[in-house]
Design a binder for these strands. Structure first.
Lengths: 157, 157
DNA sequence: ACACCTTAGTTCGAATTTGAACAACAGGAG
DNA sequence: CTCCTGTTGTTCAAATTCGAACTAAGGTGT
C-alpha cells in the first residue's frame, strides 16, 4: 500500500528547516538584487556571470558550461550574455575545437566592473548571512547544502 | 582607514557555505518548479500562495500580509492572485474594516487543488532536501536560517 | 473640519525568464 | 563515406517579475 498510502508530511522541525530555507533564500535574493543594482547597475545574475568567468581559467567559458554553473536556462544565458556584451563587460569568441561552440570571455572592462562591485556585495553577504551564523553553523550549512547540491546535480543527468 | 580598507573576503569555509546556499537554492527551485507545473499545472509561487492562505485562519489573508509572507512585490502578487482567480482557486473579497483592503480567500476548489498537489510536492522536498540531511543538520539549518530570516526581516522595517 | 503624511492595491511599461522549435554541427556505428 | 543520434547556441512567443506612478482611503494633529 506504499505508493497510494498517506504521504509523509513534514514534522515541525523539518517544516521549520524548509520554510527557513525558502524564506531566507527569497529575502536574501531580494536584498542582494537591490544592492547590486543600486551600487553597480548589475543584476545578481549578471554579477554571477562575471564571477564565474573570472574564476575560470582564461576568464572564459563555453556557454553551456556557464549555464550549468549558474543553474539557468540556455536561452536565459544567451540573453544575459548579449546584455553584458552590449555594455562591454563580456565578449563572445568562437570555440576553436567546436565550430558550434561559443566562448564567453571576460573583458578588461568586465574585470574592472567586477573589482568595483565585489566589495559591496561581499560585505552585504557577510552582514546578512555569514556573520549571523556561528562557525559551526557555517560548517554544517556548507556540508549539508553541498550534499543537497550534489544530490540535485546527479538526477539531472 | 576602515571604510576604505581592503574588504574582508570570504574564507574557504564561508565561500563554500555561500556557494552551497545559492546553488542548492537555484537547483531546488528549478526542480520543484518543473514538478509542480507538470503534476498540477501550478507554479511554485502559486502553490505557495495556496499554502499560505490554507494556513491562515479562515483561509484568507489581506493582500499586503500575503505579499510579506511570500516575499514578493505587491504588483507581482496582484498578478498571481488574478491568475488564480481566473482558474477559480482563489476569490477576492473586500475587507470589512478597511475599504481599501482586499482579502484573498481560498475557494473550495483551491483547497482541493492544494490537497491534490501537496503530496507530490512534499515528497520531492523530502527526497531532495530533508532526507539528504541528518537530524542534526536539519536542526542547525532551521535555527540558522531562521536567524538569518529574522535578521533580514528586521532591516526591512 | 482641515491639511498632511502614510498605507492599500492596482495599473502600466520595461526587463527578464522559460521551454519549445529550430538550424548547424559533432561523433560514432555500420 | 553515410546515416543517426545527441549537442550547441539562438530565436521566438508567452508568461512572469519588478519598480514607479497612480487612485483612493486611513489616521493624525491642529
Amino acid at each position: 500500500m506504499s505508493p497510494l498510502s498517506e504521504p509523509r508530511w513534514l514534522d515541525p522541525d523539518e517544516a521549520a528547516a524548509w520554510r527557513g530555507f525558502v524564506t531566507a533564500s527569497n529575502l536574501l535574493n531580494r536584498r542582494l538584487e537591490r544592492q547590486l543594482k543600486e551600487d553597480s547597475g548589475l543584476s545578481h545574475q549578471q554579477y554571477e556571470i562575471l564571477v564565474h568567468l573570472s574564476a575560470a581559467p582564461g576568464g572564459s567559458l563555453r556557454m553551456t558550461e556557464l549555464a550549468d554553473n549558474l543553474v539557468t536556462s540556455k536561452s536565459g544565458l544567451t540573453y544575459q550574455v548579449t546584455q553584458l556584451e552590449r555594455i562591454g563587460l563580456v565578449a563572445r569568441r568562437s570555440c576553436p575545437s567546436d565550430i558550434r561552440g561559443v566562448i564567453a570571455e571576460l573583458t578588461d572592462q568586465g574585470r574592472e566592473a567586477l573589482r568595483q562591485a565585489a566589495p559591496g556585495h561581499v560585505a552585504l553577504v557577510r552582514e546578512l548571512l555569514i556573520d549571523v551564523l556561528s562557525r559551526e553553523q557555517l560548517a554544517v550549512l556548507a556540508e549539508g547544502l553541498g550534499a543537497v547540491s550534489a544530490r540535485l546535480r546527479l538526477d539531472e543527468a
